[in-house]
Simulated assay, not measured.
Amino acid sequence: MGMSVTISVATGQDAEEIFRLQYLCFQSEAQLYGNYRIDPLVETLDAVRREIGVDCVFVARLGDEVIGAVRGRIAEDGSAAIARLCVHPRLQGHGIGARLLRAAEAELAQKRGATLFRLQTGHRSEGNLRLYRRVGYEPVGRARGTDGVELIVLEKPAVTYVATA
């Protein structure tokens, strides 16, 4: 790669690229579960736009192209719910997902007061589980998504966040 990947806060102008990237990235998850109605694939562009306006949304760029994204929001219990982490399939395995997670964690802890990070991934999503464990998340339970997929819930105390900027 001749260019370096940059991480930045998403803007409304990124909504369509995030929407398309999410659709591309979650195809493998849909295939893994035999369910092409999983939440990331049925989310609307308007919903993505709304989240960018309200939530903590970061993108990874290679030049002008959005090649990764992650979202986070403070939940009612003060924890930070992190979701929709995705990196373009051709660029996975280069640490971009971990960088996106760190950016979201920093924002959610330092500027929004999160005390705990929580995320979910499908129970068969071994690559996702490896990444989340590698960056300090521990499984704490299971849930079922609105799409019917069995999910593993993982958490990480916000106090374990170490800024690496």
Rank of each mutant, 00 (worst) to 15 (best):
H123S: 05
F58S: 03
E155F: 07
Q120R: 12
H88K: 14
A143W: 05
E43A: 09
F58Q: 06
S28C: 02
I67S: 06
R102C: 03
Y137L: 00
H94F: 14
M3T: 10
A81L: 14
I38T: 06
G2C: 09
L21I: 10
R90W: 01
E138G: 06
F19C: 01
P89G: 12
K111D: 11
G2W: 13
A80M: 02
V140Y: 07
N128V: 00
I7F: 11
L45C: 08
V42G: 06
F26I: 00
Y36T: 02
A69Y: 14
I96P: 00
E107Q: 12
L85I: 13
R134M: 08
F58C: 03
Y132K: 08
A47Q: 14
A83Y: 11
L91Y: 14
G2P: 12
Q92E: 10
R144A: 04
V66K: 08
Y161K: 08
P157H: 03
Q22P: 00
R50A: 13
G127E: 13
A47Y: 15
I82Q: 06
D147A: 07
R50G: 14
I152G: 04
E51L: 08
A104R: 10
R102N: 13
V135M: 06
V48K: 12
T121C: 01
D77K: 09
L108S: 09
Q92A: 02
R99K: 15
M3W: 07
L91G: 04
L131Y: 04
I152M: 00
R133Q: 12
V87C: 05
Q13P: 00
V9Y: 11
G141I: 07
